[in-house]
Computed example of a mutant assay.
Amino acid sequence: MLPASRELVKIDRTDRRILEELQQDGSLTNQELAEKVGLSPSPCLRRVRALEESGVIVRRATVLDHKKLGLSLTAIILIGMDRHTPERFAAFEEKVAGYPEVQECYLITGQDADYMLKVVVPDMDHYHHFLLNHITRIQGVSGVHSSFVLRRVIDSTALPLGYLS
């Protein structure tokens, strides 16, 4: 049996519509959401609360325009570790979780790397500083390969809910 946090949650067509609307605009009021999905406000609110309590809705966030804030460099970093032990991985993950520049961190397979990070910084000078003074100083990091994003072709946080019944 899967751990409680990984148990699948059954949702129906109305729940899926609620989730699709909230993924597009998490700031919708309950009244607006209810109108969009064809419910009255009370049942809509109950469904949203149930989706939150079940852990399907993890949190709501505001998406910012990184360039308007002067964060114009996005780097994808592939990181190799010297040892593949739970302790080494846990220490690395704890360390990178404390860096606000790191937007995403994945433990991966299929590459000559163990981790893939997505990092956002103002410019190459800041990236250079971040790499040399933070990433390469984490115990166990044995290799770093950086790629830089030229253009965001698809930039979505929405999950593909069409697969759900």
Rank of each mutant, 00 (worst) to 15 (best):
L2E: 15
L2K: 15
L2C: 10
L2Q: 14
P3H: 07
A4T: 13
A4Q: 08
S5W: 14
E7Y: 06
E7V: 15
L8R: 09
V9L: 11
K10E: 14
D12A: 05
T14F: 05
T14C: 12
T14W: 00
D15C: 03
D15N: 02
D15W: 01
D15T: 01
R17W: 00
L19D: 07
L19N: 01
E21K: 05
L22V: 05
Q23V: 02
D25I: 08
D25K: 05
S27V: 04
L28E: 00
L28G: 00
L28S: 04
T29W: 01
T29P: 01
Q31R: 13
L33C: 04
L33A: 00
E35R: 13
K36Y: 05
G38I: 12
G38E: 10
S40D: 06
S42A: 11
S42T: 15
P43M: 02
C44S: 07
C44D: 14
L45S: 12
R47G: 01
V48M: 10
R49A: 09
L51Q: 06
E52F: 07
E53N: 14
E53F: 13
S54Q: 11
V56R: 15
R59M: 12
R59E: 03
R60Q: 11
R60L: 02
R60V: 02
R60N: 05
A61V: 14
V63H: 03
L64N: 07
L64D: 03
D65E: 10
K67T: 10
K67G: 06
L71F: 09
S72R: 08
L73D: 06
T74R: 03
A75M: 04
A75C: 07
I77G: 00
L78G: 01
I79D: 02
I79F: 01
G80Y: 01
G80V: 00
M81T: 01
R83Q: 14
T85S: 14
P86I: 06
E87F: 09
R88W: 11
A90V: 08
A90Y: 12
E93F: 08
E94S: 12
E94I: 09
K95H: 13
V96G: 01
V96H: 06
V96T: 09
A97P: 11
A97H: 10
A97Q: 15
G98W: 06
G98C: 09
E101F: 07
E101K: 11
V102S: 08
E104Y: 12
L107E: 10
I108C: 14
I108T: 12
G110L: 14
D112N: 13
A113V: 14
D114W: 11
Y115I: 09
M116V: 15
P122N: 14
D123V: 13
Y127S: 02
L132G: 05
I135G: 00
T136F: 00
R137E: 13
R137A: 08
Q139P: 06
Q139F: 08
V141W: 05
S142P: 01
V144E: 01
H145V: 14
S147L: 15
F148T: 13
F148Y: 14
L150S: 03
R151P: 06
V153P: 11
V153M: 15
I154C: 04
I154H: 06
D155W: 02
D155F: 14
A158S: 12
P160V: 03
Y163V: 15
L164V: 10
S165V: 02
